[in-house]
């Protein structure tokens, strides 16, 4: 057990000197170098902390921008441009011809009536015209016959 615990006597003869050396003044300037390194690291850590601080907000903003971008892209991909859904009169006629059996007479008449109403001048317009004609001394009876 003694052999296990203690250095070998034979080895002791070799001595404990190390065959290494260091540059002159190495241990005098090492503490300063280490101190500078630690201070530099501390500064770096502070900068990193600042970045970490705004990192969350920046991620949130970036996420929001991406989300808006995706939403806009999705909207334009799903919804075709307005001019593509504009139907011409010929299209309407074709649709009605194809599905004529789906419409009853009443519906068609109502639709025609509605479309005429659309082209009828508005009440304001009519009154304006009446006022104009009256001003020009047009006969009221003629006027009533006209409208």
């Amino acid at each position: 057990m003694k052999d296990l615990e203690n250095n070998s006597d034979k080895l002791e003869l070799l001595g404990k000197e190390l065959p290494f050396k260091v540059p002159e003044g190495y241990f005098d300037e090492l503490p300063t170098r280490i101190q500078n390194l630690c201070v530099g690291e501390e500064k770096k850590k502070t900068q990193v902390s600042l970045f970490q601080l705004v990192k969350a907000q920046m991620s949130l903003a970036a996420g929001f921008i991406i989300l808006v971008g995706l939403a806009l892209a999705g909207y334009y991909f799903i919804k075709p441009p307005a001019d593509k859904v504009m139907l011409t009169n010929d299209d309407y006629i074709e649709i009605v011809e194809k599905h004529i059996t789906d419409f009853d007479e009443g519906h068609l008449l109502n639709a025609v009536k509605d479309s005429r109403e659309i082209h009828t001048p508005s009440n304001d317009m009519t009154e304006e015209m009446i006022r104009y004609l009256l001003k020009d001394n047009v006969d009221y009876v003629t006027l009533m016959e006209e409208y």
Partner: peptide
């Protein structure tokens, strides 16, 4: 930076 005798 090595400086020692042969045995070392």
């Amino acid at each position: 930076h090595v400086d020692g005798d042969e045995i070392q």
